[in-house]
């Protein structure tokens, strides 16, 4: 008889029921996808990035498809902290969803205020610091490309937050391990990566950029090899748990991230292609474990052999 594999993920201060999370910005506030994916079945749902005040986002067009990927410049349109706590979070809590709140501030103080506001809220399991959004003028990437600024943001958030704190890194640095190490030294409990890669597409006929914002973030299968390499580097550089992602479309993709050392994965763009994608990936990982007689998925983590 094939036994049910143990899919739980030990993140230190927090244990996830399984290793598949929905990435920020690709799953709304959970409710949008609920017709096709029960968010409570996932290891966690990272909600759309939150700011203190509601943000309108960028003018359209905001997306364009590219080879094996897509560019987005949503510009962090979100309801703001207060509306999230009052109108979005209760629906998630009622359904026992493991909620990860992704936060973005224009200043260090705003990050602290967001962490403080979320700290009082029941039902936010973890905070993900976004220092890597390429689509906003202030904050985001401006912090994430510097180990010092990243550490500064992490310190204030860790101090203000009651939950475990995860930091989402940008691929846009020459040495990602330096940023990861700075984040962990500043108190980050978990590292997640990668955010999208700043990129561009043009409309030849109209002689215009394909996105109104000119530049957007590349995601999808096109970035998976980049993400895999960076996750591998970070897991070797820091002891803190790592959650990997970037172009994961299938269970096999997810298993590759786990094999190079990520303890869990974030599924992003795949949710747009198929709202059932995260669940299918979860089921696929489970099926793979049974097939290969892997009883505890954590033994698969970091099992890559390099000869």
């Amino acid at each position: 008889m094939v036994t049910q594999p143990d899919m739980r993920v030990d993140l230190g201060k927090l244990v996830l029921k399984n290793p598949v999370l929905a990435a920020s910005g690709t799953f709304g506030y959970g409710q949008e996808m609920a017709d096709f994916c029960d968010p409570a079945l996932l290891g966690g749902v990272v909600v759309k990035g939150l700011t203190l005040e509601p943000w309108p986002g960028n003018p359209p067009p905001r997306i364009v498809e590219t080879s094996a990927g897509m560019l987005n410049s949503i510009g962090l349109e979100n309801v703001g902290l207060d509306v999230f706590l009052k109108e979005k979070l209760p629906w998630l809590v009622e359904r026992n969803v493991t909620v990860v709140a992704n936060i973005l501030g224009k200043t260090v103080d705003e990050y602290a205020a967001l962490a403080q506001g979320l700290g009082k809220a029941d039902g936010v399991a973890m905070i993900e610091i976004n220092v890597s959004c390429p689509n906003v003028a202030a904050g985001g990437l401006a912090f994430g490309t510097s180990p010092e600024f990243t550490a500064q943001v992490v310190r204030v958030v860790v101090q203000a937050a009651e939950q475990p704190v995860m930091v989402k890194l940008t691929p846009m640095v020459s040495d990602i391990t330096a940023v990861a190490e700075a984040a962990v030294q500043a108190g980050a409990d978990i590292i997640s990566l990668i955010n999208t890669i700043p990129a561009m597409a043009v409309d030849l006929e109209n002689r215009r950029p394909a996105l109104k914002n000119v530049v957007g973030g590349l995601s999808g299968p096109a970035i998976k090899p980049v993400a895999l390499r960076l996750v591998w580097e970070v897991t070797r550089a820091v002891d803190a748990p790592v959650i990997g992602g970037g172009g994961i479309m299938t269970a096999e993709d997810a298993l590759e991230f786990l094999m190079v050392g990520a303890r869990a994965v974030q599924v992003g763009t795949a949710n747009f292609v198929d709202p059932r994608a995260a669940l299918k990936i979860l089921e696929g990982i489970e099926a793979y474990c049974k097939e290969k007689s892997i009883q505890d998925l954590s033994t698969w983590v970091g099992s890559l052999k390099i000869d």
Binding site: T26, G28, M33, F36
Partner: peptide
């Protein structure tokens, strides 16, 4: 996405 999650079609 077509479901209101991605905020692309603004």
């Amino acid at each position: 996405c077509g479901l209101g999650a991605c905020l692309s079609c603004a």
